[in-house]
Design a protein around this nucleic acid. Sequence first.
DNA 1: GCGACAG
DNA 2: ATCTTGTCGC
Length: 235
Amino acid sequence: MLPVINHPWNVKTSDARDIQSRLRQQVILTPLSDSIYTIAAVDVSYTRWDKIGYAVLGIFSVINDNGNEAFTIKEELIKTRIDSVNFPYIPGYFSFREIPILLPLFETISTKIDVIIVDGQGIAHPRGLGLASHLGLIFDIPSIGCAKSKLIGEYSEPGMHKGDYSDLHIKNRIVGTVLRSKEKCRPLFVSPGYKCTIEDARKMILKLCTKYRLCEPIRRVDEISKTLRKSYQNK
DNA sequence: GCGACAG
DNA sequence: ATCTTGTCGC
């Protein structure tokens, strides 16, 4: 699987800013396909001083129950350890930290992916190019950002029931959804990454939220990456 | 200058 | 993100 976009990663934030502003023009928000069968999720866990990262790519083959819940019938996990994490975490430049870590994972697979779920923002970003958008654009694969907290934007608190939501907007532009994925839990910040609409992103994430606040694909890769880190620290 | 600030 | 036990609320 070859990236359709190529640019340097180890750059100053001022250059990263220019790259983001340029690439955002290529982010298109077309409807997601009706037949989503293969869902990927990615996550990275770090050791205490950021030196080592454990990256996981999970590929989940799902089957829909009349469009309500998605059940995983097969999962494929790809894991990597990164011994030197270069780019620091800077809000707004998250993709320049994580994408270089995630790229090797995608090079090993041949499975066709229908959509990538990312724990981070899609277009709900100061320059319209959060990690999910950047990753989707690079591979030309539809993607969705599903963050646990807000990076930018204004919203009113959504209702307290599962599935309730409100718009996340920047100025007068709607960029995502604040979604109550579980009763009495803090909402998720869902925004389309690439080749996905705001509505399709919300519906897909809600469908993948079964018992917990986080959607199942993210929960799963989160669990795996943390387990990898802990097994390292116990040596 | 001050506050906000994905993971 | 990571460190870290108990504790309060549903």
